[in-house]
Amino acid sequence: MNNRHPVHLVDAPLDPWQLPLIEKKASFSRLEASRLSADSTTLLASSAEILATLYYGVLRIRHADPEWPDRDRFAFGGRTTAAALAPLLADLGFCPRSHLDRNPQLVLGFEGQPGPIRLPGVDFGSGSADVALPVGVGMATAACLAGRQYRTFVLLDENQWQEGRMWEAALVAGRHALGNLIAIVNHSKQSPHEGLVDTDSPERCADKWAHFGWDVFHVDGHDVTALLPLLRGLQLAHRSAPAVVIARTDEAFSHERHPLGNLRDAASAPSDGIVDCRPG
């Protein structure tokens, strides 16, 4: 951690079935994304566990009521994130699964990005590298002004560290102490920038986030046993600063490292449509 002051996370109890379920959904996401997308499997692998943890263990969402005012907000940037997320949203009932097979591009949306108009379940998605965090800051600010208790999660990748508008948004969030904002940086070990721009290394960027007033956490982005308690703890805690989780991932991470038996049977298990981990 690179925290300016002690952060006390809520120790939320975990149901014993959640961890294996999330791992299976992550592998399902990876398999479906590689089937539907023209990209290689390695490009789609890195965010699967992060997305599955959010959607099956952390976010308060209702597929029957996508515009529920007290739902947690989720924003992201990145085309490969969209490809990995679309199967999970279909699995949760936000859109018919048949849409994935009939027209993957319709589900993935404009330039591979699902958005609030094309696909419920996502509050904002964009291929522009520097837009997601500014939008997330706006969502978190709106919650404060309206007196609502929802949290805003923003999934970024390390390529966005190159963008000035993202850092401007980070500075604004820290200055206004947006404790309801959680950013997750998917830092892949195979990033094309790693080793070329030393000022954008995870260690340097962690110091920059902390300097801008954020609480900084590090986690293995493929380890669900670490991701789930950390993200849920950040969601449940009442904090006075925004939080950023730097998740180290590997684009070559393969579902073959986790044999899961009949994956598609597990992925087709019925859902009640509500993932509600925080008291209303």
Rank of each mutant, 00 (worst) to 15 (best):
residue 212 F to P: 01
residue 97 R to V: 05
residue 125 G to P: 03
residue 216 V to S: 00
residue 103 N to F: 14
residue 207 D to I: 11
residue 184 I to T: 01
residue 269 A to K: 12
residue 98 S to T: 14
residue 40 S to G: 15
residue 259 P to G: 10
residue 164 G to R: 06
residue 229 P to L: 10
residue 2 N to T: 09
residue 260 L to F: 03
residue 86 A to H: 01
residue 92 L to Q: 08
residue 123 D to A: 04
residue 103 N to S: 14
residue 52 A to R: 02
residue 108 L to E: 05
residue 29 S to M: 10
residue 181 L to F: 07
residue 63 H to A: 14
residue 67 E to M: 13
residue 13 P to L: 04
residue 16 P to G: 10
residue 185 V to K: 01
residue 194 E to I: 13
residue 196 L to Q: 14
residue 218 H to N: 06
residue 258 H to E: 11
residue 85 L to T: 03
residue 38 A to W: 15
residue 245 V to K: 00
residue 269 A to W: 06
residue 27 S to A: 15
residue 25 K to F: 09
residue 183 A to K: 01
residue 244 V to P: 00
residue 43 L to H: 11
residue 58 V to K: 05
residue 166 M to C: 07
residue 141 T to M: 11
residue 243 A to K: 01
residue 195 G to V: 09
residue 70 D to G: 03
residue 42 T to I: 13
residue 14 L to F: 05
residue 261 G to K: 13
residue 120 P to D: 09
residue 200 D to G: 10
residue 270 P to Q: 05
residue 221 G to A: 02
residue 130 D to N: 11
residue 148 R to Q: 15
residue 120 P to H: 07
residue 227 L to Y: 00
residue 93 G to C: 05
residue 127 G to I: 07
residue 64 A to H: 14
residue 248 R to P: 00
residue 84 A to V: 01
residue 44 L to W: 06
residue 172 V to Y: 08
residue 76 F to P: 00
residue 14 L to M: 10
residue 145 L to P: 13
residue 63 H to G: 06
residue 147 G to Y: 12
residue 62 R to P: 04
residue 22 I to P: 01
residue 118 R to H: 12
residue 179 G to Y: 04
residue 233 G to K: 01
residue 45 A to V: 03
residue 52 A to N: 04
residue 278 R to F: 03
residue 96 P to V: 11
residue 81 T to W: 02
residue 280 G to R: 14
residue 195 G to L: 09
residue 135 V to P: 01
residue 235 Q to C: 02
residue 191 S to W: 02
residue 181 L to W: 05
residue 216 V to T: 00
residue 218 H to L: 07
residue 131 V to F: 11
residue 177 A to G: 05
residue 168 E to T: 11
residue 121 G to Q: 02
residue 181 L to N: 02
residue 76 F to T: 00
residue 205 C to T: 10
residue 75 A to L: 07
residue 147 G to I: 12
residue 143 A to M: 12
residue 176 H to R: 13
residue 247 A to D: 09
residue 103 N to A: 13
residue 92 L to F: 11
residue 86 A to D: 05
residue 126 S to E: 04
residue 234 L to V: 02
residue 272 D to F: 07
residue 246 I to R: 00
residue 143 A to S: 14
residue 128 S to Q: 10
residue 160 Q to L: 02
residue 146 A to R: 12
residue 74 F to W: 00
residue 257 R to D: 12
residue 141 T to D: 08
residue 176 H to N: 10
residue 160 Q to N: 09
residue 52 A to H: 02
residue 248 R to Q: 03
residue 119 L to Y: 01
residue 268 S to C: 08
residue 103 N to L: 13
residue 214 W to D: 04
residue 158 E to S: 12
residue 104 P to C: 07
residue 14 L to Q: 09
residue 146 A to S: 14
residue 253 F to I: 01
residue 86 A to R: 01
residue 172 V to C: 13
residue 224 V to A: 04
residue 45 A to D: 04
residue 31 L to T: 15
residue 82 A to S: 14
residue 2 N to E: 09
residue 255 H to K: 06
residue 106 L to V: 13
residue 127 G to M: 11
residue 227 L to M: 07
residue 64 A to N: 15
residue 18 Q to L: 14
residue 237 A to C: 14
residue 135 V to S: 01
residue 133 L to Y: 04
residue 15 D to N: 15
residue 94 F to L: 08
residue 250 D to K: 12
residue 120 P to G: 05
residue 266 A to E: 09
residue 246 I to A: 00
residue 260 L to Y: 01
residue 74 F to V: 00
residue 247 A to W: 04
residue 129 A to T: 08
residue 260 L to D: 05
residue 160 Q to K: 08
residue 75 A to N: 07
residue 67 E to I: 12
residue 218 H to Q: 06
residue 168 E to Y: 10
